[in-house]
Design a protein around this nucleic acid. Structure first.
Lengths: 197, 197
DNA sequence: CTGCTAAACTAACGATCGTTAGTTAGGCGC
DNA sequence: GCGCCTAACTAACGATCGTTAGTTTAGCAG
């Protein structure tokens, strides 16, 4: 028996609906209907519609950040100063978080724009900081000569764009397991940066 | 003096607004306000809101398809049977279309889900066919040994995901020209596939 | 049995949604 | 000057939006 609060159930179905129809395209009554409940009943557990979106986005952001923390710490532990290892760990961690809850991650990736000004700005700042971690290892790798010369910003955006697009096609019940996908993406990423050509 | 029909103006500002707030998050009155006109006045030029979205999506899809036609024909003309050249041409063409109208391309990439059932299905079919062109060259390259062994589906999705993500950060007035970005992405793509590792 | 709590309900509010209908104003060809 | 076309207008429709208020129901603790 899995313990789940009503609030958590609401956020789960909201993640699903926001992912499929977007935040603006999903009404409070849509969420309620998925829970076989009247729309107004949700306000016993939630203070506003944006509040639900914020919970989803904030939790997803935190999961990405914490996974990156662990990944970088571990990479630094048994391959200190190796930008390829560090980046590989970041990529693997990112894909893991993404595939462990596609709905939540998908909402995080594309629906944060619907937040109010302050919250949107906060997400943007955290996003920038997160991207900077990837870019740091890319730049370091180029400086050390283990990565080919290329524009670090473009390379970083390209990598994260590729990773995030996984939410558009990943199917938990599909042919490809989350682990296999993560391994492939680590491979593709490093080859993109290391390749001689 | 650039000739522009009223209908085209409507689709242009709609592209801009759909891109920023999504289809569901943009009202007919929002579009009208951007044109300094009453909401109801738009119905003299347009039959429905979805009709506007469809025009944008259909035109974007056609531009991608036609650019791919030209790219493949040209690659086949002066490097016949070379999957790397063919893929490079497809990537370059895709980025060119994308950067030539970021709003339209951005709407195409993320708002086609808001279309009604038949039109959404049609877009999906065209999208699949378009992806298949990329995957074809990837598979051929692997078979010929010019690309490294990897899962062709994951590689194709990764490439197109990376390319499409350009709409989320490309700025026509920014540091990086559209051409430079296209060249970089051709480079990153081929290195990702060719790299030995 | 009583009282408390969680979770739902009904009813309604003002605002906004996409859309329709009918009308008005200006410019051009005949 | 008359008729037509383009492009706008005002007014309103029924539906749905997010949200509030007050009430009811069921289960459990004392």
């Amino acid at each position: 028996m899995v313990e789940t609060t009503r609030r958590q159930e609401i956020e789960d179905v909201a993640s699903d609906l926001f992912r499929e129809h977007g935040y603006a395209g999903t009404s409070i009554r849509d969420i309620a209907r998925a829970l076989s409940v009247q729309g107004a009943s949700l306000y016993a557990h939630v203070t506003s519609k944006e509040d639900v979106l914020w919970s989803i986005v904030d939790r997803a952001a935190t999961r990405f950040e914490e996974a990156a923390d662990r990944a970088e710490a571990e990479a630094e532990a048994h391959a200190p100063g190796d930008p390829a290892e560090a980046l590989a760990a970041l990529v693997k961690a990112h894909v893991d978080v993404l595939t462990s809850d596609v709905d939540e991650a998908g909402v995080f990736v594309s629906e944060w724009r619907a937040l109010g000004d302050e919250r949107r700005a906060q997400v943007l700042a955290r996003r920038d900081a997160y991207q900077a971690r990837f870019r740091g290892h890319v730049e370091e790798g180029i400086a050390l000569g283990v990565f080919a010369m290329t524009d670090p910003s473009i390379a970083t955006m390209t990598i994260l764009g590729a990773l995030n697009s996984i939410v558009t096609w990943y199917d938990p019940d599909g042919r490809l397991s989350a682990d296999r996908i993560a391994d492939h993406l680590v491979d593709l990423t490093l080859r993109m940066l290391e390749g001689s050509r």
